[in-house]
Amino acid sequence: MKILMLTDLYPEAQEADPSVFALHRFCRQWALDNQVWVLRPYCTPNWRLRKRSMPSRWQLEGVDVMSVAVPKFPARPWFFSGFLQRVMNRIQPDVMVGHLGFNLYLAARLAKRNRLPLVAAVHMGDLVHGPRMLGETRLKRVFQQANRLAPRSLAVSRRLLKRFPELESRSRTAWSGLDSAGFRSDAARENRLCEPLAGQPLRIITACRLTKLKNVDVTLRALAGLGSTISWELIVAGDGPERARLERLAVKLGIAARVTFTGWLERSLLRDHLSRAQLFVMVSAPETFGLVYLDAMAAGCLVVGAKNEGIDGIVKHQRNGWLCPPGDPDALAAVLREVDSLGADSRQRMARESRRTVAALTEEAAAGNYLDILREAVNAGER
């Protein structure tokens, strides 16, 4: 099968680390038995297109990637007569896949013009920001055109179908999977989760790009609210525009001595930090999925995520982790107290459930599930 994906959720250059991009994990698995192309559009004013700057192209683990400038919300037929249409003619894909916002709309336009089956991958951002960015009518038309919809998590699926219940028969969750290379064995993981927490600092880690939606400030306020009742230390792995503000907040809350900001870490170093931590906390919202939760569980961390966001449904409250409202420091503080007070039996139960969860969510299984969605779209388009 020839697959063409449109998305900007992909490495910007050949030298980028592909392991941090969830969509590339799908594509590199598909490329083992299929031909896969990724068009990485980026919006630009129309006048820049007249300069005819050549797109950049490279191959990444068997996937052909092309970055190309497009005008924002093209509305005229001339747009499709240029470079992108020549790409379509050369590739002649069997199915189009669009991911996130403008790329979803662009994929729908190209699929309609070329009479191709369309898979519309739905992210949390499409439901939260899509009506403002694309317009409610345009967004609904894309969903109605799609042969199959692929919400990227159970939480996204619930929100999508609550809003558009008529789409249920064409909707199937395209969850992400874990690249388990370099992680501990199952037995070591369970032993890691069963280490006693009493009598030593609770070792907590969060790993993300430091933006407002990650709610790292909520984590800091929750930890400050614990007072002296719990001994803890926090690693904040990542960088971003919020880092300076978060560092100042830690000082203001009087917890700076127990919080370490590492900056951006290579994947091997992040795995080392995860393997030494006991608890991973990230209550981000809106969040489509959050592959780092699976990385943390695989490395031996208990996990706290945000209720009704991307990881809700994978993490099940008090079974293989905890869920709490994303903007509530008091609720998060209550969860942290519960974690600190866990007995051995509870830790063992959490360890077993966490192991079952991670074992089922492999990269290969996730890619196979998503590929089945693409096949369903192709079959539906042939009827």
Score class of each variant (00 low, 15 high):
M1D: 07
K2N: 05
I3C: 03
E15C: 07
D17C: 04
R25Q: 11
W30V: 01
P41L: 15
N46D: 14
L49I: 02
L49K: 11
K51L: 06
K51H: 05
W58H: 01
S67R: 15
V70Y: 02
R76T: 14
P77I: 11
G82P: 08
V87P: 02
M88F: 12
R90W: 07
M96K: 08
A107W: 13
L110S: 10
N114D: 14
L118W: 09
A121L: 13
V128C: 03
V128I: 15
G130V: 09
R132M: 05
L134T: 09
T137K: 07
R141P: 00
Q144W: 14
N147L: 10
P151K: 05
R152P: 07
R158I: 03
R159K: 14
F164R: 04
S169Y: 11
G182I: 14
S185H: 03
A187V: 11
L193R: 12
E195Y: 13
R203G: 01
I204K: 00
I205F: 06
R209L: 09
L213S: 07
K214E: 09
K214W: 04
N215Y: 02
D217N: 07
T219H: 12
R221T: 13
L223F: 13
I230V: 15
W232Q: 02
I235L: 08
R248E: 00
V251L: 13
T262C: 10
T262P: 03
L265T: 04
E266K: 12
L270R: 01
R276L: 09
Q278G: 11
Q278P: 00
F280P: 01
Y293D: 01
Y293R: 12
A299C: 01
A299G: 10
C301R: 06
L302W: 09
I311S: 05
V315P: 01
N320Q: 05
C324K: 13
C324A: 06
P329F: 03
P329I: 01
L336P: 05
S341G: 10
G343D: 12
R352F: 05
E353V: 00
R355E: 00
A359T: 05
Y370T: 14
L371R: 13
D372S: 15
